[in-house]
Amino acid sequence: MTERRHRAVYLTGPTASGKSAVGVFLARRLGAEVIALDSMTLYRGMDIGTAKPSMAERGGVPHHLIDVLDPWESASVAEYRRLAEAAAAEIEARGKRVLFVGGTALYLKAMLRGLFEGPGADPGLRSRLEAEARRVGSPALHARLAAADPVTAARVHPNDERRIVRALEVHELTGRPLSSLQSEHASPAPAGTMVFALDRPRPELHARINERVDAMFEAGLVEEVRGLLSAPRPIGGIPAQGVGYLEVIDHLQGRTTLPVAVERVKARTRQFAKRQMTWFRGLTEVQLRAVDPSASAESIADDLFRELTTGSSDR
């Protein structure tokens, strides 16, 4: 029997490609509920900078895994996958289809191909590594990880102590890089798993990104971040590294001006979108769908729905 996560439909694409709006129309046509495939909309109070769809924008379609964590918390990929599988089971129990919508490529890969859990934690080793991180700083441990496992180091932020420690722990316990072990658990999803990625022309996507960033600042992104920093428990290290949040924090703490922060958010968002497309092109399950700049979200959803219901595919 096909696993639930492979019966689901996936709609992905780079940031600002229009996934959320298309997803609502597609969900209505499929009789589906949406599970957010996004590592940042998990957090409560982080609405503007994550482009979290409002209740109005969700159009009456139930959305899951939005606002499930406080901003001082963090979720591993394994935790996301557990939450997503539980949500999918509940949706199917109601007789609805499951539609994943979002652009976190690592989450997408974990849902499609499974996840390498790795060896169990070694309390003594982990305590030693955590103590070392406190003594010399996470960036120093990240440099060691880069020497031992450059592939993992390239996708882990130098301040992400938890993931750095785990990668070093796995390397010391197994004698092998975490990335090498993970690659052995990377078989593509079964044929027929439906995964669509919206692919807009780069100039148009960049214009949409710039417009979105301007709109975020006009909507109060600086005030949102100021509130997160002044909360009784301030924003945690991982969400604070999110695109937009890091740059605004730098501004609020006097390291840059507001105009410079705005331009840095635009540049970093464009870079992020480029990395997303590299990920999507590297997953054989993903079907890129070129988007006509003049097409509405509803017409894009109609095209995808016809493909899903007729079984036609460009594969």
Rank of each mutant, 00 (worst) to 15 (best):
Q276E: 13
R134T: 11
D38Q: 11
D160Y: 15
A154M: 09
A89N: 02
A290M: 13
M1Q: 06
W279I: 04
V24L: 00
R135V: 02
S76F: 08
G31P: 06
H142I: 07
E117S: 15
A295L: 12
S294V: 09
M1A: 10
L246A: 15
E132P: 00
E117F: 10
S138W: 07
S299F: 03
A16H: 02
Q241Y: 03
W72L: 10
K19I: 00
A153S: 10
V22F: 08
S299N: 06
M216H: 11
L11G: 00
W279E: 05
V98R: 05
E285S: 05
L69W: 11
P119Y: 07
A215M: 15
S179D: 07
P71K: 10
L198M: 11
A110F: 04
S138I: 07
L168F: 03
D214T: 12
R134H: 09
H185V: 06
A121Y: 12
P190Q: 00
A121C: 07
V195N: 01
Y10H: 07
G49N: 06
S20W: 04
T257H: 13
R44D: 03
R4L: 06
R44F: 08
D47C: 08
E172K: 10
R128H: 03
F272A: 14
G236F: 01
R144K: 15
S299L: 05
L37M: 12
M194G: 02
P201M: 02
I164N: 07
V77M: 05
E85N: 03
D302R: 15
R306T: 14
G227K: 04
E169K: 14
R58I: 03
G137F: 09
V156R: 05
A27H: 02
S54L: 03
F25K: 05
T278M: 10
L181A: 11
Y10R: 03
Q276T: 15
A105F: 04
G254Q: 08
L228V: 01
S180D: 14
R28T: 01
G237W: 08
D38Y: 11
L258I: 11
Q276W: 03
R97N: 07
L30S: 10
V260M: 14
E307F: 03
P232T: 02
R281Q: 14
R44Y: 07
L112W: 00
F196R: 01
L37S: 01
L288Q: 13
R44T: 03
L246H: 12
H251Y: 13
W72N: 10
P123N: 13
A273L: 04
A219C: 07
D250K: 15
G175F: 05
G102T: 04
I235M: 10
D122N: 14
R7V: 00
A93Q: 06
R270K: 15
V213S: 06
R281A: 03
L129Y: 09
I249G: 01
V195S: 00
